[in-house]
Amino acid sequence: MAMNGTITTWFKDKGFGFIKDENGDNRYFHVIKVANPDLIKKDAAVTFEPTTNNKGLSAYAVKVVPL
């Protein structure tokens, strides 16, 4: 089920960042999981599918909501 969130941290040079989800949890995401990576920036609103990996909470099918 899709969730909403906000990008809180973005490491462009490393290709990953973190999203604060609607429950207040931080989720890892990688640029290859983003549909529109050219719009990635700190504080951008996103929708995504929540999941977990071996390191904890993460996100896939991430879409940055255009302003």
Rank of each mutant, 00 (worst) to 15 (best):
M1P: 12
M1H: 13
M1F: 10
A2W: 11
A2G: 10
A2Y: 12
M3D: 02
M3L: 13
M3T: 05
M3W: 07
M3A: 04
N4Y: 11
N4A: 09
G5Q: 01
T6H: 11
T6F: 11
I7Y: 01
I7P: 00
I7N: 01
I7R: 01
T8Y: 08
T8V: 14
T8R: 10
T8C: 11
T9G: 09
T9R: 13
W10Q: 01
W10H: 02
W10V: 04
W10A: 02
W10S: 01
F11Q: 04
F11M: 06
F11W: 08
F11I: 07
F11T: 03
F11D: 06
K12W: 08
K12A: 12
K12T: 07
K12S: 11
K12Q: 09
D13A: 11
D13R: 09
D13K: 11
K14G: 06
K14I: 06
K14S: 08
K14A: 09
K14W: 11
K14L: 12
G15A: 06
G15V: 03
G15I: 02
G15M: 07
F16D: 02
F16A: 03
G17S: 00
G17W: 02
G17M: 02
G17I: 03
G17Q: 00
G17P: 00
F18D: 00
I19R: 00
I19D: 00
I19M: 04
I19S: 00
I19Q: 00
K20C: 14
K20Q: 09
K20V: 09
K20T: 14
K20Y: 10
D21H: 02
D21E: 01
D21A: 04
D21P: 01
D21G: 04
D21K: 00
E22P: 04
E22V: 07
E22K: 06
E22H: 06
N23I: 06
N23A: 08
G24M: 04
G24F: 04
G24W: 03
G24P: 01
D25M: 09
D25R: 08
D25N: 09
D25F: 09
N26F: 15
N26S: 13
N26I: 15
N26V: 14
N26L: 15
R27L: 04
Y28F: 13
Y28G: 02
Y28W: 11
Y28A: 03
Y28M: 06
F29S: 00
F29A: 00
F29Y: 03
F29C: 02
H30I: 08
H30C: 10
H30S: 12
V31E: 07
V31Q: 09
V31I: 12
V31Y: 11
I32D: 15
I32K: 15
I32G: 15
I32F: 14
K33N: 15
K33A: 15
K33D: 15
K33V: 15
V34F: 04
V34H: 03
V34Q: 03
V34K: 02
A35E: 13
A35Y: 13
A35T: 12
A35N: 08
A35M: 15
N36S: 05
N36Q: 06
N36I: 04
N36G: 03
N36E: 06
N36Y: 05
P37C: 06
P37D: 03
D38M: 11
D38Q: 12
D38V: 08
L39N: 08
L39M: 13
L39D: 10
L39P: 03
L39W: 10
L39R: 09
I40N: 01
I40V: 09
I40R: 01
K41Y: 08
K41F: 08
K41G: 06
K42G: 04
K42D: 04
K42E: 08
K42L: 13
K42C: 10
K42T: 08
D43P: 03
D43Q: 09
D43F: 14
A44L: 06
A44C: 09
A44K: 05
A44H: 04
A44I: 06
A44R: 09
A44M: 09
A45W: 12
A45H: 14
A45Y: 12
A45G: 07
A45T: 11
V46P: 00
V46A: 02
V46T: 02
V46M: 01
V46F: 00
V46R: 01
T47M: 09
T47H: 07
T47R: 09
T47N: 07
F48E: 00
F48Y: 02
F48D: 01
F48R: 01
F48N: 01
E49F: 15
E49P: 01
E49T: 15
E49S: 14
E49A: 12
P50G: 05
P50E: 03
P50M: 04
P50W: 03
T51P: 03
T51W: 15
T51K: 10
T51L: 11
T51C: 14
T51D: 10
N53V: 06
N54H: 14
N54T: 12
N54V: 12
N54L: 12
N54F: 10
K55R: 14
K55F: 14
G56V: 07
G56D: 04
G56M: 10
G56W: 09
G56L: 08
G56T: 07
L57W: 03
L57G: 04
L57H: 05
S58M: 10
S58Y: 08
S58A: 14
A59H: 02
Y60C: 14
Y60K: 15
Y60V: 15
A61H: 13
A61F: 10
A61Y: 09
A61T: 05
A61I: 05
A61E: 10
V62G: 00
V62T: 01
V62Y: 01
V62P: 01
V62N: 01
V62R: 00
V64A: 03
V64I: 11
V64T: 03
V64M: 04
V65E: 09
V65Y: 10
V65L: 14
V65A: 07
P66E: 14
P66Q: 13
L67P: 13
